[in-house]
């Protein structure tokens, strides 16, 4: 079985995962979906890279998700599960639909300009970058900001994998992913400690 046959299922996984992250305000759902999203990212990167190198993305993504999950578990913010108003849900849903439409449009243009990409890579990459950017624009807390940055970077890495297969860059980008998760964890913990002491 060729790796390319996993492209469409990977894109579907990414789509479901990122919509769950986007629409759910529950951090458990969000982080579980982030972990699943990296499965899809791995599937799309494996089209361009050898599987053993693409696995680096999967593992670093899972590690980053785990770091954030562990931090959330031990932070006091876990008790603050605020229910999401319907109006907010509708707003996010419409925003997500808008990003999907733009991503579809841009991915077609990107394929004309750079035919080296598969359609699934192009759509998956742009969709994740767009969702990451939109989520980043509405976030001002460590957890959401780091998750948005991880989504944005995952999208970029899908596209970049098609043009650059350097082991050094793969390693450095894995370190960057972990670093973002650790920085986010640090910011969550330091805010939590502050709240506890005040």
């Amino acid at each position: 079985m060729e790796i390319n046959s996993f492209a469409t299922p990977s894109l579907i996984i990414i789509f479901i995962a990122v919509m769950t992250i986007f629409l759910s305000r529950n951090w458990r759902w969000g982080l579980t979906s982030l972990g699943i999203m990296y499965l899809g990212v791995f599937g799309l990167i494996a089209i361009s890279w050898p599987t053993n190198l693409a696995v680096v993305k999967l593992i670093s993504g899972w590690l980053a998700s785990s770091v954030l999950a562990i931090t959330q578990i031990f932070s006091t913010q876990k008790s603050k599960q605020v229910s999401q108003p319907t109006s907010e849900f509708i707003f996010w849903a419409f925003s997500a639909i808008l990003i999907i439409i733009i991503s579809y449009s841009l991915s077609s243009s990107l394929l004309v300009w750079l035919p080296i990409f598969e359609f699934q890579q192009s759509l998956g990459g742009i969709l994740l970058m767009g969702m990451g950017l939109l989520s980043l624009g509405f976030s001002n807390q460590g957890f959401r900001v780091s998750m948005s940055l991880l989504i944005f970077l995952a999208g970029f890495e899908i596209l970049y994998a098609a043009v650059e297969a350097s082991v050094l860059v793969a390693g450095l980008l894995a370190v960057v992913n972990l670093g973002i998760a650790l920085s986010g964890a640090y910011l969550i913990v330091s805010r939590t400690e502050e709240k506890q002491t005040s």
Partner: peptide, 17 residues
């Protein structure tokens, strides 16, 4: 610090590409 992290992280993909 969060904005510093976000803006610098956004810069990297553009330069790499």
């Amino acid at each position: 610090a969060l904005r510093f992290l976000a803006f610098q992280t956004l810069a990297m993909p553009f330069i790499l590409f």
